[in-house]
């Protein structure tokens, strides 16, 4: 049972200042721990792991951990990750995004990454709020919740990340919580190991910006809320509709075995470049076709 924290220390950047910037009791540190343990359990070397983070509190995680790390622009982590994965499919590319990152400004990138099934693992740290910018409502803020920009209560409905990712075609969809860490370790490791696009929504508390305004004064209050309301999927499914209330299921939601885009592309390339295959006149056909189709079809230029 030992070696949990010391193991984490081995993966932290020793030239980076600790403690990290997160508030006391922020779940992001726990996610970082789970991520490190998962990578360690998979036996991956630090060099083959690339962490791509967006903007927001979650984006800051990248700087602390001794992998290849890229801290990108707001909402765009998955686009950078797609480029990195396609450029070097041997890398294990893991994106860390917040709910604002992944569901609002980067929502389009999320559904397309899922659709094209790029071999990237997406961790969506859902704390129901824009934490770093001061507590404005996000696309996952529950209806009725009070935030800086919904002082009279949120009227809009919240996104269900898991359902959205599944509908968009993700190869693997999981939800974990920062309280149920053993399960989280397992989910994250599975999501990293499997082919194609795998997403883990992680319920993580932000008492500073969300809890404070919504009856959860401290980090402990928020963890109690998570402990009570995150129930394993099997149990949740067995609950009568009336008893579900605020509860949300955690566990495995989708597991498909489609090949990742980078794998399909590699196979295509191998086929096209097989020795003995006649080299087609490359430049002509496509350009010619393009010109013709432009003339014949009613292609609306953007």
């Amino acid at each position: 049972m030992a070696d949990i924290t010391e193991l984490i220390h081995d993966y932290l950047r020793h030239n980076k200042k600790f403690p990290h910037v997160f508030c006391a009791g922020c779940g992001h540190g726990i996610v970082l721990g789970a991520l490190i343990r998962s990578i360690h359990a998979l036996g991956l070397s630090k060099d083959e792991v690339c962490i791509v983070a967006g903007i927001g509190c979650s984006g800051r995680i990248a700087a602390y951990v001794d992998f290849n790390t890229v801290h990108t622009t707001h909402g765009r982590a998955l686009t950078f990750a797609t480029g990195i994965k396609m450029a070097n499919p041997k890398l294990k590319v893991i994106t860390i995004m917040g709910d604002g990152d992944a569901m609002s400004i980067g929502g389009n990138h999320l559904i397309h990454a899922a659709r094209r099934n790029i071999g990237v693992t997406a961790l969506v740290l859902n704390n129901n709020i824009y934490g770093m910018t001061g507590g404005q409502c996000s696309a996952t803020t529950p209806q009725g919740a009070t935030t800086q920009t919904t002082p009279f209560g949120q009227m809009e409905k919240a996104f269900d990340i898991v359902t959205l990712a599944a509908a968009a075609g993700a190869n693997g969809v999981y939800r974990g919580s920062t309280f149920h860490v053993n399960m989280l370790d397992r989910l994250v490791a599975t999501a990293i190991e499997r082919p194609g696009f795998n997403l883990v929504e992680i319920i993580t508390p932000c008492h500073t910006q969300y809890g404070r305004k919504n009856k959860y004064k401290s980090a402990v209050d928020m963890f109690k809320w998570i402990k009570k309301n995150c129930v394993p999927k099997e149990k949740f499914d067995a609950l009568p509709e009336a008893d579900r209330g605020e509860k949300m299921p955690i566990g495995t939601f989708v597991e498909k075995d489609h090949k990742g885009l980078e794998q399909l592309y590699g196979e295509l390339q191998a086929r096209l470049n097989r020795p003995g295959r006649p080299v087609a006149e490359p430049e002509q056909p496509s350009a010619q076709h393009a010109e013709e189709s432009r003339n014949i079809m009613n292609k609306e230029p953007k």
Binding site: A2, L7, Y11, A24, G25, G29, G33
Partner: peptide
């Protein structure tokens, strides 16, 4: 597992800090 700041280390009694295991 739950310390967000990696500030708690629990070791078996008498055990030394082990070598990095990455």
């Amino acid at each position: 597992r739950h310390c967000p700041d990696f500030a708690i280390v629990v070791r078996g009694k008498g055990r030394k800090r082990r070598a990095p295991a990455c």
